[in-house]
Simulated scan of single mutants.
Amino acid sequence: MGVVGKAFGWLADGANWSGESGVWHRLAEHLLVSGIALGVACVVALPVGLWLGHVGRGGALAVNLSNVGRAVPVFAVLALFMVSPLRSAGYLPTVVALVLFAVPPLLTNAYVGMREVDRSVVEAARGMGMSGGQLFWRVELPLARGLVMTGLRSGAVQVIATATIAAMVGQGGLGRIITAGFNTYNTPQVVAGALLVALLALLVEGLLVAADRLLPGRGRPAPR
């Protein structure tokens, strides 16, 4: 039996799913940290990106500044937090590091999505007497939704995958399964942990794609 087969065998063992070190507990930790980080990033990045795209000013500077987060090593930021007073703040250091990592794709896609709305459609809506708020909600946002959702999916997958490094500084999540496997030279456990992270990322992306397709008004202005 190969390593992958042994990894599935590890996953099939019910003993590995129970207790504080089990899969269910680690999965709950992973979802909690990832969900909070993604939620905070959405609250920070989406309003800024959408508004800047709507007014058409200051977007390039904001996008360039947010992209600095792509060049910042998340593990380095997390390690710095863990030697600061924040180390006793539970999952806060991990959440902050992941928020910095998730903001760039959310803000960039929101801004670009709004700016790529056909200007002739925008001008026609203005000619019909729409106010700025009506133009934003009924025309620009529905047409920009595709790129906004792409940014959300990208941010979600990146956060879920990157949250595994929290285990390297003693935090919880599915990464603890991987690090525990490394520490005990248990290669099947390492592979099993990696498979769980990959499957979780794929599942979340699939759910977001399905949600996007189920939402009304996809790709067209909302009716007046």
Rank of each mutant, 00 (worst) to 15 (best):
V3H: 03
V3T: 15
V4F: 15
V4L: 15
G5D: 13
K6G: 13
F8L: 15
G9T: 08
G9S: 13
G14Q: 07
G14P: 03
W17T: 10
G19H: 13
H30C: 04
L31P: 01
I36R: 02
A37N: 06
C42M: 15
L46A: 11
H54P: 02
H54A: 13
G56F: 08
G58Y: 11
A60Y: 05
S66Y: 00
V68R: 04
A79K: 12
L80Q: 03
M82P: 09
V83K: 04
V83L: 13
R87F: 10
V95C: 07
A97G: 12
L98A: 01
F101N: 04
L106W: 05
L106E: 05
V112N: 12
G113V: 06
G113H: 04
R115L: 15
R119E: 15
S120A: 13
V122S: 04
V122Q: 14
E123H: 11
A125P: 05
G127I: 12
S131W: 11
G132F: 05
Q134P: 03
W137Y: 10
V139Q: 10
E140Q: 15
L141I: 11
L141T: 13
P142S: 10
A144Q: 10
G146P: 09
L147W: 03
L147V: 04
M149Y: 11
T150H: 01
G155E: 00
V159N: 00
T162L: 14
T162C: 03
A163Y: 00
A163R: 01
T164N: 01
A167R: 06
V169W: 01
L174S: 01
G175C: 08
G175A: 05
I178M: 01
I178G: 00
G181E: 10
Y185M: 09
V191Q: 07
G193N: 04
A201G: 14
E205G: 02
L207F: 11
A210Y: 09
A211L: 15
P216K: 09
R218V: 12
A222L: 15
R224T: 06
R224E: 11
